[in-house]
Nucleic acid binder design. Structure first.
Lengths: 278, 278
DNA sequence: AATCACAAGATTGGATACCAATCAATGATT
DNA sequence: AATCATTGATTGGTATCCAATCTTGTGATT
């Protein structure tokens, strides 16, 4: 088994991806040490890993927080993602064999069935996974890791953002990309990938604030020993198991930089994280 | 100032880039703790950072070693590098203004002058730097960091490899890429980038072994307090300041997996790291 | 009442000492 | 000579302690 700091880092990453830990949330050493029942040092090592991954931000003598990417950084992440996926598309259009195309088609089909069945949660997961499968077919582990890191960071953005776009259009993009690529129409496929991401970004409107709906202890509870139902719960925060108090008043540990903090309606958070476009 | 583990990680990274710490070299916690005069914990945090960066490999209960990428991984790294630089090239051909092209040309010119002056060390550094400047012009910090990490990992390969190629051809590639891009001949520029990297990789022949010529303590000595002349010494090991014994007999701390270890001539190491193609 | 300064508390970054588990190398045994 | 067991060294991790810094709350002042 790998080191304990790695597993803790993985758990925190999972919680961030699942939007149970939201940007700006304070990750106190002592608090996490208690939650995971390890020493502070192991926690600090885990936080270093998160920070290296771009998911956390460590401020000297102030502690670690879930990263709060700026709008600028959001654009850069999506630009990088586009660049990587376009490059992989170019490689695949040359090198991919029939089995590869079949796998992609099969994945798209699975997602389509999930949508048809009204299983939005599964559809969202599959939608995310498509990009991962796509890059995996390049058979380049280095590239895979880079891409996976970028994808992880986009999940941060989805917490900061009010999605507002036509969900159905995006759903077909995956299928069309596969079609275009297999037909050798690389240029059009790359343009579609660009448009795909650009549509997502354009639908994004950075909110100024995000309020955590639970404390880290509550957020991390599902992962602790039960080996949590990770994949299925990644759709939203709604069906969370608060394991105790259900009062959503816990605004604890929010990190807000010195900005104009207009008392916006907290309801905006409710509308966030609806669809998870990919 | 940032955390101490970060500065130690930076120093180790610098030493690896400078080929003072070679792949397979053991990075013992206690040893490094003494060298840097810190506790083992700080060292371990630094090693975690190195491992996350792909420059070190931590084996449970065995310790950390400078990473020893396989031939497969080497190809993947260069593939990823090609993909990134081709993508950046595509972006620049659209978006780059006159000032940007001027900066690239100026950089190429500086390198040409260095070559003309016979200053191979400076030429090598500038050759590396060209790629960095190239990516920086994309104005995408996320992409820059990804690229920089890939470049760092290529320096590992140069320790493992006996360079054997036509050095002069590669020198002009940078200039030609700039020319092609500015003229809008994107496709050709991308092909040239591909060929550029492919030529480098083809010239590589993975050696089975690399023998460190000094202990970590010797390797790290130049960086310790004098704030070392980092940039200028990155050409090779030759003008190193061993700060003490000059006997190159110290084969200490080599990590060799269970492989057929033919007693090859140690002289191969001498021929390595001549030109640093980029 | 509002603001500023200061002191107390809390948190982080780090050091030290210590322990258990594991790997490696040595020596003992057959 | 080959194999097995023991010993030593190293790592992963804990607990405790300390200094520096940040936050907060209180109180004095205007």
């Amino acid at each position: 088994m790998s080191s304990r700091s790695q597993t803790i880092a993985d758990t925190l990453t999972r919680a961030i991806i699942d939007h149970r830990l939201v940007p700006g949330c304070k990750l106190g050493e002592r608090e996490l040490a208690e939650i995971f029942d390890v020493s502070r040092i192991v926690v600090r090592q885990a936080l270093i890993r998160l920070a290296d991954d771009g998911l956390a931000q460590i401020e000297r003598n102030r502690g670690a927080f879930v990263a709060r990417p700026s709008m600028q950084e959001a654009m850069e992440i999506y630009d990088a993602l586009t660049l990587v996926e376009q490059g992989v598309a170019a490689q695949l259009s040359d090198r991919l064999g029939p089995a590869g195309w079949a796998e992609l088609r099969q994945h798209v089909e699975r997602q389509r069935q999930a949508v048809a069945a009204g299983n939005d949660a599964l559809a969202d997961v599959l939608g995310q996974e498509f990009h991962t499968v796509f890059v995996r077919l390049s058979r380049n582990k280095v590239m895979q890791e880079i891409h996976a890191q970028l994808v992880r960071r986009t999940t941060l953005l989805r917490s900061l953002i009010t999605a507002d776009f036509d969900y159905c259009n995006l759903l077909d993009d995956h299928s069309r990309v596969v079609d275009l690529l297999e037909k050798g129409r690389l240029k059009q496929a790359m343009d579609l990938i660009d448009t795909h991401h650009r549509t997502v970004v354009r639908g994004y409107i950075m909110d100024r604030e995000v309020f955590p709906e639970m404390t880290p202890a509550e957020a991390l509870a599902p992962y602790l020993d039960g080996k949590a139902d990770a994949a299925t719960t990644s759709a939203g925060l709604r069906q969370a198991k608060p394991s105790g108090n259900g009062d959503g008043a816990a605004h604890a540990h929010v990190h807000l930089p010195n900005e104009d903090r207009a008392p916006t309606s907290r309801a905006s958070t409710k509308k966030t994280n609806r669809g998870l476009p990919t």
